[in-house]
């Protein structure tokens, strides 16, 4: 949430509570009785303040909304395709969406060597041992 939206939200809330308070006071002063009827309608300034405050609040809420997600498949797909390999984007997305969010290409599980049901555990083990032997472990074996 940026500064402009915060300012708008605070101002809108202040105006709104002020308008509500004023109308309450107004109602107390000219409490409508059965005989008098509605001779004292709400003054124009209170009505205006109410409308202005709601407009300002709406603007603030719209400004504070998070960035829109892509609506077109190809744009969304590009985002997924590149975020998978980009650690920074991944991190940010995870923080946005909370734990366990779907990150990366949702179809990655269908690619060669990435199918969860058919994990080649011995191959992975061998490849890792190979990597350690080549000194990739940085001395930690």
């Amino acid at each position: 949430m940026g500064l402009p939206s915060t300012v708008l939200l605070v101002a809108g809330a202040a105006f709104l509570s002020h308008a509500v308070y004023s109308s309450y006071e107004h109602a107390l002063l000219f409490s409508p009785s059965i005989s008098s009827g509605n001779k004292h309608p709400l003054p124009l300034d209170i009505v205006l303040e109410l409308l202005v405050s709601i407009t300002v609040l709406c603007a603030g809420i719209v400004l504070a909304a998070p960035k829109l997600k892509p609506i077109s498949w190809r744009v969304w797909a590009r985002e997924k395709e590149t975020e998978e390999k980009n650690v920074n984007i991944r991190r940010r997305k995870e923080e946005d969406a909370g734990l366990g969010a779907q990150v990366g290409n949702p179809f990655a599980g269908l690619e060669d060597g990435s199918r969860r049901g058919f994990l080649d555990v011995r191959g992975a083990r061998k490849a890792f041992a190979e990597w350690v032997r080549e000194g990739g472990g940085g001395g930690r074996s």
Partner: peptide, 18 residues
């Protein structure tokens, strides 16, 4: 770590070690 909830299967060796 969130990586553990949804890690890609083809992880680089360094990350798997981590």
């Amino acid at each position: 770590s969130t990586d553990l909830v949804n890690p890609p299967v083809q992880l680089q060796p360094e990350k798997a070690l981590h």
